[in-house]
Each structure stands twice: as C-alpha cells, then as structure tokens.
Computed example of a mutant assay.
Amino acid sequence: MNLVRAELLKIRTTNTWWLFGLGAVLMTALAFLVNMLTANTMLDGGIGDLEGINPEQAEQIRAQADVAYQAANLYTSGQFFGLLFVMLLGIIVVTNEYYHQTATTTFLTTPQRTRVVVAKLIAATGIGAAFWLVTTVLTIPATALYLASKDLGSQLGDGGVIRAILLNLLAYLLWGIFGVGFGVLIRSQIGATVTAVVLYLVGTTAASIIFTVLQQWLGWDWIDNLQVVVPSIASTLMISGTELPGSPPQWVGAAVLIAYAVVTGTVGTIIMRRRDIS
C-alpha cells in the first residue's frame, strides 16, 4: 500500500491529472448533450420509415430506439474520451519515472520490480475508478432529469442499464492497465502519449472501415462482428443497454478487454523486470 500511495503521490504532484480530469468532465458534458439530442430524436419516433432497409439493420435501429438503450447511452456519456484520458494517465504513471529520472531511485528503494509494477497497475486502476465515479456522478442526475421530463422514469431499475453502468466501470479500470502496459513498451513520454492518441483516435476509425469493407467485399456477415477485437469498440459494446440484433453480446466486449488487460499487464511486468533502466 505504501508503494501504491507513492504512485498516486507522483500523479497528484503534477498538473497532468487535473488537466485530464477537466478534459474528461468537459468531454462528458459535450457527449451528454449529443447523446441527449440523439435520444430525443429516437424516443420521439424519429427512426422514420424502415421499409426497404435490410431487415437486420431495421431491427438494430428499432433496438436503438428502446428507452433502455438510450438511457444506458446517456448514463455512460463521455466514455470514448474518458477512456483515452485514463489510458494517458496510465502511460504517465510509467513514463514519468524516466522523464523525471526517478526510475533509479524507485527501484533502489524497492528492488522487487514486480511489486513496483503491481503498485503502478493498482494506481492506474484507481485513477480509472475515480474518472468513472466523477463522470457517472455527473451523468446520473442529468439523465434522470431528462428522462423524467419525458415521463419515462430513470430506468435505473432496468437490469440492462445497471449492467451498462457497471461494465463502464470495468472498462475504465482495464484501460488504466492498458496505459501502464503501453508506457512500459514505449518509455518516451512524448512518444508514448502521441502514439497512443493516434492509435486510439485514428486506429478505431480505420479498423471499423477495414472490417466494413471486408464484410461488403467478401459478403460474410460475421466479419463485421470481428470489430469487437478493437479495444475501443469492445468498450462501446459493453455499455449498450440492450443487445443489438446481429451484434455480439456485451460479455464478449468485456472478455476482449480482460484478455487485453491480462496480456498487457503480464508483458509489462516481464519487460519492467528485465529491462535496463539506464
């Protein structure tokens, strides 16, 4: 616990955490406004005439018009950028050691490197939980007020909505672990953060386009579902309040993220134990 407190102290004594925290709050507010406009359209029968549309796509649109789906989407607003900020803080938990040249002192104080890495992983998940808590505290009353204005109730008694909120917490925890693993692989703070941002923002869109093109080219519907192997897409799947027809269930997204977390955490520990810190 002393090691964990030390890792948290290293984050608290820099300006990075509150800058990212402020960014997460602002992006959550923006995402909520966008999701509220979408929900307003969908819940007011804005799906339009679905004749002539592929039956499976029509079923997906109808499922998205369900109040539980829209409620879950509102309660988990801001996840996309929130996870990015958590991953970046996880990266900084590691790269700060090399940027400020404190790695030598850290490992001399605690020669058991595995314990240091575990402390960094715990600290990163704690940061993820804090970000989830702050954003959720903001979205729950805002969503409840919006739904009440439409006489729909808060939907917090719906199992799918509660599951989405809790799986959103799991996503925040796991992305903190991803950040630590990424920081171990690329020790340069600038290099790691820039690479992570590009992969997260551009890679998500590129992967979605590639899978869609392959699905249309080969005509195999199951290829489109392989998008779930992309961590950011798996995270989005986890927070759907209802299962969409033709899409993998929520637990698949959770399983994908857990697998990534186990791999990155294990690989990061092995590399940190063996790599020369000079």
Rank of each mutant, 00 (worst) to 15 (best):
V25H: 13
M87E: 06
G183L: 08
I209S: 11
L133T: 11
W217V: 11
G46R: 04
L33F: 08
A164V: 05
L22I: 11
R274F: 00
L19S: 12
N40C: 07
T236Y: 14
L8Q: 09
V86H: 08
T109E: 15
W175S: 01
V229E: 09
V202C: 07
W132G: 12
G45V: 02
N15R: 15
F178E: 00
I61F: 10
V137A: 14
R115K: 14
G183N: 05
T38R: 09
T13Y: 06
T16I: 14
L8E: 11
V161N: 08
G21C: 02
P248Q: 02
V118E: 07
V117I: 15
T139K: 06
S77H: 05
V229S: 11
G253A: 03
A196Y: 05
N40I: 06
S247A: 15
L9E: 15
I47A: 01
Q57T: 13
A142F: 11
M238C: 07
G82T: 00
A207R: 03
I92T: 13
R12T: 12
R62I: 04
A207G: 07
A29Y: 05
R274V: 00
N2A: 13
Y69P: 12
T76C: 14
P111A: 05
Y75T: 02
I122G: 11
N35P: 03
T95G: 01
R273W: 05
Q112R: 13
T242L: 11
Q101I: 03
G253K: 02
E97W: 02
A255L: 12
V116D: 03
A234Q: 12
Y260L: 01
N73P: 10
L133Y: 09
V198T: 04
G48N: 02
N2V: 14
V67E: 04
L152P: 02
V137L: 08
T212C: 02
T105A: 13
V184K: 01
L43C: 05
N54D: 04
L170M: 08
Q57K: 10
L166C: 01
S208Y: 12
L173G: 07
G52Q: 00
S154F: 01
A148L: 04
I271V: 13
T28L: 08
Y99P: 02
L30I: 11
M36H: 06
W220H: 14
P111W: 04
A123L: 12
T38N: 15
N96V: 07
T41E: 15
L133F: 10
S149K: 15
I47Q: 00
K150F: 14
R274E: 01
A71S: 03
G246F: 11
N54C: 01
W217G: 15
N96G: 13
T114S: 10
I210F: 14
I127A: 03
G52I: 00
T14Q: 10
K120Q: 11
N96F: 09
A29L: 09
G183D: 04
T16S: 13
L156C: 04
G157D: 14
G181K: 05
I11T: 15
W220R: 15
A171Y: 05
A31I: 11
A142P: 15
E59P: 03
M272C: 02
G90Q: 00
G128W: 03
I190S: 09
G253R: 05
A72V: 04
D66M: 08
F182R: 13
Y75G: 00
L133C: 12
V230H: 05
